[in-house]
Design a protein around this nucleic acid. Sequence first.
DNA 1: CCTTGAACCTGCGGGC
DNA 2: TGCCCGCAGGTTCAAG
Length: 272
Amino acid sequence: MPELPEVETVRTELEKTIQGAKIVNVHLWRTDLRVPVTAGFAQKVAGKRITKIERRAKYLLLYISGGDVIIIHLGMSGRITVSKVKPARQTHGHMDMALDNNHFITFYDPRRFGLMVLIKETELATHPLLTHLGPEPLEKEFSAAYLKKALSSRSAPVKTVIMDQSLVVGVGNIYASEALFLAGIDPRTPAFKAASRAPRLVKAIRQTLLAAIRSGGSTLRDYVRSSGDTGYFQHEFKVYGRKNKQCFQCDSIIEHSMLAGRATYYCTHCQQ
DNA sequence: CCTTGAACCTGCGGGC
DNA sequence: TGCCCGCAGGTTCAAG
């Protein structure tokens, strides 16, 4: 489900509902996620308090008392739900927690591309899952000058390059297409040829992600927020999923092709 | 180093 | 109805 806006939406909702709560009870139903769940996970987190919930890239970081951090990634189909009643056992519900504030959390992930590992807070800076990550797109560090330089050495399509998490984090397949439409850049353009348009692209990426966060992310197939609500940004897609439909800006037909194995949508009139 | 394609896994929709 | 194929918001690994 998740690119940066969806993960940020989950983070906000978890912050409102479970921050400060103590973990009373943990059920780990299966551990064979993309990365195996840390041995002894259930025993290690039981009795601890959730002190802080952060997001880094598409990862959620749940800080717990005692100096540990639960790192969660939702992969393609992962979901975290919060409820006030004990959740029914679901086929792909891999972990449940009961909290002392009468809330329950479930980690659900049919495809199991997600992960859930427990590390020491002191390992955050050196943990292999996090070390290769580029700057956050909404932080100052992701500047026009930075992006221009990064694009200038790459020949892959600009869309593929901005999805590279070591260059900038959080931009996935939907928002890459949407941001490039907003920037007026053809996603197939070799990155170095788009380098001069880095200032516009930085703005477009930020604007797209911020708008999506404001809408609670996008709900395509199965993404629901932890609250059970859906996101609304899918209603604002300009190109994603709109193959053969008319461009809202110029009435041309939206085109579709595969770049590095990912579906890509664009308007050849508005994007060059 | 960079790029692409395949692999990981499950479910769903379309075509026959 | 049932089967097979392709495709899905991500990441990682191998090979060229």
